[in-house]
Write a protein that binds this DNA or RNA. Structure first.
Lengths: 344, 344
DNA sequence: CGGAGTCAATGAATCGGTTCATTTATGCTT
DNA sequence: AAGCATAAATGAACCGATTCATTGACTCCG
């Protein structure tokens, strides 16, 4: 025999079938809107279900069907305010389609990413959308290629034939940098995240492209990478402004790090706009409402979330779609008062 | 017969058993760290699993065990930056304990809340943490009392014997209001969220308690409730400041609405600090870095997330714990430059 | 009127682990 | 050496819904 955890005796298809005087197969067909059920029987079964308070066991369905109607989303840190928008929209699209969202944080560690992919497999998750800490990581790539379910990359470089949704960070950073160069700045410091990942890499490319377009060379000592949090940004800003030859403009390209930078400037008594020009790599209430308002790069994270979910759904449906589709949402530069002509 | 979706032929316990030359029961016991397996056999089985690349099917485990190792979190809108902190910490604690987080947004609608509770049941979710749009809603209460799994309320009033984690909004609001009254303000406007839910109700209570403590009556025309977004806050602020007798201080008690309020004031050319004192109901980068910095109420959402997950885990474990536990995290008032003496 | 063809409904087999009554092996005691 | 106790391993039954070969009922047509 076998009596697992003292299960509160639940109603099953068998009970419904008995109550309605039909076979279990018929109940199942009613549940799944199978056409070959007479209206009369369908109603009888539905009445029985209502009467008994029946709820199908998705667990059993999943096991039999080999799919779970779960979609996993794993991002490096969902403590990034604007990412919430992405998740919110993705969840809405997925739920509309009958899927439930699993959420996990990778903490930007390859080993966690691999462990999560395994956990998702074990759960028979039907699709995954995720960020990666490092697109080149061998083990992560191996784990991705072994994944039995479709995986969509969030704002990451192309890997094999995986679908991806990205923002045009390169264009945004180029715009921002050109804007500052156009204002006469020559010593522009850049705070950027982890260069192993696409967004930071693209931003740096855009930055360099703008310099190249102007026919000048950026000072490599003014670049700070691996700025992943507000605290990092604080320290990076402080160190930059303490240089013998400090920058005249700051491009705070990493996401959600503007606060740390502004805190450092305030502590050092440097006025934004006058003492130094500032451009933020992502827009926020803070950027908009700061005094002076901060020039910022903006893009539509909600749209990214919707597109990611939609593309993943299409892929899961197994439609005949070309593999490795990429969708890029545009970035724009919102010019505000924090970026001013260099008064050499 | 039956051949469901063309399942990529996966390795099963049976295959592992054959490879290792043992019975399936033994493989299962190895998987579950059952003590009664000799070291030798355990190693043989583990080698076979590694060799075949075996991964257990959590779906099948769940079905047999009647539990899924899933915990659901449903909040009204996870587009609230500070809530991300809650989810982040809760997820970390849950994953540590071997659970996976399901996420859904209720959009603050009772029907969605009820539908989600049903969906969670069908998935055999082991525990739920959620907010409610209205603690008094009959159908929601019925759905909660019928839920077969433990439910923990996030920042909501006591319902039956459900566990709950709350912040002391009443104390925070009282502090904030007393602070303004102490500065000589008598016409304090309050922007608050949905009074059907605990946080807003508590804040209003705190507000009134402070007034009562000072022996005066608040002007009811200065109260704006149902302020649920930044856009609402914009409109509410604009309408308040257009009154014949406008307020001299604004208590923006609703979460994540400070931006809208400040935008309105800026549009109307009213200076924070000089023209009007402002206190925010929740702290943020914006509050800290605005000019002038905004006095704000702060509390530890990360701790709330950790506690929520921990309490729910204890409850799920079925320990003999008193029912209806409540944990309240304290609030504090961070006084900054936006609240100044009333210069009548 | 009989046989072919439709259409509904049936229920046993199945998905992949887990459990437990049973069997087999081992150790200990006298 | 026999008897008993203990421990390890076995494998059939089971969790609950789905599927499909089969049965039964009914229609249509020559």
């Amino acid at each position: 025999m076998s009596s697992p955890a003292p299960r509160s005796q639940t109603v099953k298809v068998k009970d419904v079938a008995r109550e309605a005087g039909v076979a279990v197969g018929t109940v199942s067909r009613v549940l799944n809107d199978h056409p070959a059920v007479t209206r009369e029987l369908r109603e009888r079964v539905e009445r029985a279900m209502a009467h008994l308070g029946y709820e199908v066991d998705v667990t059993a369905q999943s096991m039999r069907a080999g799919r779970s109607r779960l979609v996993a989303c794993a991002i490096r840190d969902f403590d990034i305010p604007r990412f919430a928008l992405f998740i919110k929209e993705a969840e809405a699209v997925l739920r509309e389609a009958g899927y439930t969202l699993l959420l996990a944080s990778t903490t930007n560690r390859p080993d966690v990413e691999i462990a999560l992919l395994r956990a998702f497999r074990r759960r028979r998750v039907d699709g995954v959308m995720m960020t990666l800490s490092d697109e080149q990581h061998r083990d992560v790539r191996a784990a991705l290629s072994e994944a039995p379910m479709p995986v969509l990359l969030i704002d990451r470089d192309r890997i094999d034939a995986l679908d991806r949704v990205t923002a045009d960070h390169r264009a945004g950073a180029r715009l921002a940098t050109s804007h500052l160069l156009g204002l006469g700045h020559r010593r522009i410091a850049m705070l950027v995240g982890d260069l192993k990942a696409f967004p930071s890499r693209s931003r740096l490319e855009g930055f360099r492209a703008a310099y190249a377009g102007a026919g000048i060379e950026p000072d490599p000592r003014l670049l700070r990478d691996d700025v992943l949090s507000s605290e990092h940004a604080y320290r990076a800003t402080a160190s930059l402004m303490s240089l013998a030859e400090p920058p005249t403009a700051l491009f705070v390209a990493a996401m959600d790090t503007l606060g740390g930078c502004l805190r450092a400037l305030r502590t050092m008594g440097i006025l934004v706009g006058d003492g130094i020009s500032v451009v933020a790599g992502s827009d926020s209430d803070l950027a908009e409402l700061y005094t002076p308002p901060i020039t910022a790069i903006a893009w539509d994270l909600a749209a990214m979330g919707r597109h990611a979910a939609t593309m993943l759904l299409e892929r899961m449906r197994g439609d005949e779609i070309e593999r490795g589709r990429g969708l890029t949402v545009p970035t724009e530069l919102i010019i505000r008062g924090s970026s001013r002509p260099f008064a050499g």
